[in-house]
Design a protein around this nucleic acid. Structure first.
Lengths: 132, 132, 132, 132
DNA sequence: GTGGTCTAGACCACT
DNA sequence: GTGGTCTAGACCACC
């Protein structure tokens, strides 16, 4: 399947959809899965696929464009901007993950869970993700 | 120090304050740090401590009462309900942590980070938390 | 007239307004007058109609959403959740009425009123309601 | 058992305890079960029996005294005042029951219940009460 | 002292 | 337009 369409959103989440999209794209660009020059699905296409309002997609794209990650070309699909090097080295990328890990660690402590128990579950989840 | 007051909130977070409080209390009860019969700080006390409006605290307490975790006694401070065993075994508690871990794992995959790198950072963060 | 707006509250009652609304909606859903998928009046609309503060309406709606009766759709009006069959058979609905009848019966006994007298008045009141 | 002690309160009810007591006494006096000159249980006795704060009992008694139903005698138990005829004819007493019946009728209508169904259940409940 | 309810009104986020 | 969150502050009821 077209990799451009491997988006996933959770409508029930408290995190707004447009923000889920923004961060999803940011991470996939940082990880090199989407490269400079790649085209993104059109607003209408993606809106239909995710069953959300087109303006929601548009808002996400606009934010990404405002920060220079995407470039808008009249009449054409949005494209990942070439002007900057977006893919980041692992040493930088790992820092983008820190907030999510810190949050999980805080919850683990409040739940009084042993480190080994937590690490084991996390390891299992990471393995599942590799072979979905 | 009085353990009842070990609350922490982040005002800058997109997660509303009242919800942070609700989940904080839920986890501390599940972890056994707050036990059945324990009194919670009063609405006004906690509001002053966290520098938020009393109604924000009240909203959190009301939700916890609605789900049966707290019980209200007219004119007295809220108390952890005695009717159910709230502290849960580790096997149950670990499941409460799964969503946070799953989210971190999803982000790690989008960032194309190697499992070993991710596990290492998580391990470090867990260690930091133990000796703050 | 729009049936969605057949709300009624008593501001003088000791029962809080938001709770009157919650129970009103619950009963009208159980009775099938409001069906799954139906939209409720907006917070601001209903607040103006009932001459109460919008937050009072919002509080009632939030509680109904927390118990799964309503579903929130970002930016759109609240809607009766489709996931469960809410309208209940008469055998179930009659049980929802039991507390009110039991209370009336207890008061009747304390007033030392004869059963026939009480039944007659209740019958009259029920008839009045049908032809208001 | 001593009839003066046939009080019943519901601590979980939204109706305040002191008001439950006030209305309970009013109805039992109106019904003639408690007569002029009868002594009521002492504040401490009743507080212990109902497991509530003595001040709550005292507040109820004070309200009843303020409206002339009870009279307080220093060092002695409260007594139903003799100065007025409290027991009321059935024609008056039935009106005291109207609010509870009207409420039940309103709920029945919202639940879309047939009159016959409602009357049947009410009849059953009245019968149960007679032979508890 | 305790919590609850409500109003007034600002600001935000989403469609 | 929709609902959500929060503040400021008044008033009430209960213990």
């Amino acid at each position: 399947m077209d990799d451009r369409f491997a988006f996933s959103i959770q409508t029930g989440s408290p995190e707004p959809i447009y923000r889920q999209l923004v961060e999803h794209v940011r991470r996939r660009v940082a990880g090199g899965q989407i490269k400079a020059g790649d085209e993104l699905p059109s607003v209408r296409e993606l809106a239909q696929l995710l069953a959300v309002h087109p303006m929601t997609i548009s808002k996400a794209y606009s934010l990404l464009q405002a920060e220079g990650l995407l470039e808008r070309r009249r009449g054409l699909a949005m494209r990942v901007a070439a002007q900057h090097q977006h893919a980041q080295p692992a040493a930088s990328r790992i820092e983008l993950l820190r907030p999510a890990l810190a949050r999980a660690a805080a919850e683990a402590r409040q739940l009084q869970l042993a480190k080994a128990t937590v690490m084991k579950l996390f390891s299992d989840i990471l393995d599942e993700d590799e072979h979905p």
